[in-house]
Design a protein around this nucleic acid. Sequence first.
DNA 1: ATTGAATAAATCGTACATTGTTTAAAGAAG
DNA 2: CTTCTTTAAACAATGTACGATTTATTCAAT
Lengths: 236, 236
Amino acid sequence: MAETSDFKAKPPEGIDAIGASSEGASLYQLIREDIIEGRLAANERLVVTDLARRHGTSTNPVREALQLLRGEGFVTLVPNRGARVRPIDQDFVRDIYEIGVLIEPALTRWFVNMATVEDIAELERIQGLIEENNFADTFRHSELDTAFHTVMYQKHYNRHAAELWWKHREVLRAVSRRFNFTLARRAAILSEHRELIAHVKAGNANEAAELIARHVEGSGRHILEHMRARNAARAG
Amino acid sequence: MAETSDFKAKPPEGIDAIGASSEGASLYQLIREDIIEGRLAANERLVVTDLARRHGTSTNPVREALQLLRGEGFVTLVPNRGARVRPIDQDFVRDIYEIGVLIEPALTRWFVNMATVEDIAELERIQGLIEENNFADTFRHSELDTAFHTVMYQKHYNRHAAELWWKHREVLRAVSRRFNFTLARRAAILSEHRELIAHVKAGNANEAAELIARHVEGSGRHILEHMRARNAARAG
DNA sequence: ATTGAATAAATCGTACATTGTTTAAAGAAG
DNA sequence: CTTCTTTAAACAATGTACGATTTATTCAAT
């Protein structure tokens, strides 16, 4: 019933019901995307009047969007000196994937103990689509992969943890979109997902948690290596 | 040399260099305090014009402060319907202390491997003050206890994790300020701190991490039990 | 009692005034 | 002539005021 196109990755239930003013909401999203997609350079100044002109609004919605982004950590503000893009650099990526390594195993452990037949079927269905796609369309892979993990975390009782995961996920997804998956990483992703499903079916919570720790660790390292390579290429 | 009064708990280095406008900054802090201290009821409406009048400013700084608070998760906003206080209830507390249980052991493990003689001396000094105070002044205990853990986490390379810890810590501190420590909890805190110092001295990272997990778990449960008791008292 | 229009209230966007910061040019000292 | 200081003007952030739009409330009529 759920079809291919359903996989525009959406946040888990009850998360991030964006509530800025209508103008502000879109502004927030636009600026935020520009930051995590890398269209705005690290530490670039965000001049309120410029942004307002560019988006055809007055300054007030821009100011509110910037405060919102500051609260979420994507922008730094110095009094009377305005806002700057918080750099999404290697440190940033390392910080958040390391937090993922700590949190996701706990979320996974709970999921394994609570998973229904439908949950497992859904995992297998998505995994089927992932293997069918087989990294041909990397964007699609990213969406499917996110959907896979969302199935596991979306019902978790700890909404803070799930929300944190989602926020970090969005950043990592945006960053990794700039790179290609290595063959080794592709193989690891597929086998780890399959193994994970097996653990879920068997109810092996601890094994699943351990596996997810490795999975997240591997994903994080993969992204970091790509970033390092690109930085080296730029420097050289 | 550092004296008693030094222990107004301050955030670790490089964290939360508050950067709203001067008016906005104080507004942000005031509203935020009102929320986590419980002076503003759960789900209470935050009317911009009221807040502006009450604090003697115009509406714009208030709006920006609210967006900032929304970004940090203390306020919910619905377009065209304004802001409400996000309830800091048992779920909220459980969520964030559980995240602490996952993150703090990792921070601790790193600290144990990196601790200098000065770090350990500082821990012992603070622990001395904690035992000297012996919960006579509960506010002072709270400050000292926070300082104790800040020594461990402030130098950690993962600024995101440290920042997260600090944000959660502030909330838990505010909530627990409304309750008294049980005798059992007092004993546990003192002995766990002493044991922790011993582990740090011996370089037992794993034991220290395990201990911190128990420590945070115990602290969280303690707060939750108090909240439950009070809710029961209110209902009955 | 329920619906619907009138009224009140609050949010949201725009425009503007004020204050602080940055830049660049002119002048003084070496 | 170069370098440093001073100063003024452009620039941008912050705060205020106000009108427009949306939502909530009241009260009358069926």
